[in-house]
């Protein structure tokens, strides 16, 4: 696919966009918490992917490479703008409609969902991204480590630290009730 993209084949680029656009957009949205900003970030990430295609090493995993480009851009843009991401949109503004009814959904109150959604924005960017990749996108510790270019042990400790921080938020909520 990458080779054909480099040869200028439009279909190959469309295929790449179809395969990864939804994943990248959701990653960006979960990271920044703002729909419009996520759209801008997605476009910037795909521009970066397109311009970096000549550097892609075909012996490596394409998904991991694309997610690494996305991760680098998300972290860089966070550092450049220094925009405080605690100002996340309300959970129900876009995400509430996507919750599928079922026993799992009933177990968790809307208030808890909102709390965790906002809590994600309070995590340091590297920890937040590791949590999103592992818990929301279902990546293994090894995959998270590869995407984030860190040792597996570091990935594990970041994810655990993030979960402990989110659990503290839940505890605070319970104690305030």
């Amino acid at each position: 696919m990458v080779k054909e993209c480099l040869e200028g084949k439009e279909q190959a680029w469309h295929l790449l966009v179809n395969n990864f656009s939804r994943r990248i957009f959701n990653l960006a949205y979960q990271f920044c918490g703002c729909y419009e900003e996520a759209e801008d970030l997605t476009q910037e990430i795909f521009m970066k992917i397109y311009t970096s295609l000549p550097k892609y090493d075909s012996s490596k995993n394409l998904t991991a490479w694309i997610l690494t480009v996305a991760k680098n851009h998300l972290i860089d843009s966070y550092r450049k703008t220094k925009k405080e991401k605690s100002q996340r949109e309300d959970f129900w503004q876009h995400l509430q409609a996507g919750i599928e009814p079922g026993p799992e959904a009933e177990m968790i109150t809307a208030q808890t969902r909102e709390l965790i959604w906002k809590g994600l924005g309070q995590l340091p960017p590297e920890i937040r991204l590791a949590i999103i990749l592992k818990e929301i996108h279902g990546k293994s510790y090894e995959e998270v480590a590869e995407i984030m270019n860190i040792p597996v042990g570091t990935a594990k400790s970041r994810i655990n630290r993030g979960k402990i921080q989110l659990a503290r938020l839940l505890n605070q909520e319970v104690s305030q009730r």
Partner: peptide, 14 residues
Amino acid sequence: KISLLLSSMPQLEI
């Protein structure tokens, strides 16, 4: 609860 909530986070359409 956190794991369940995060793993069931809805994925938006583009």
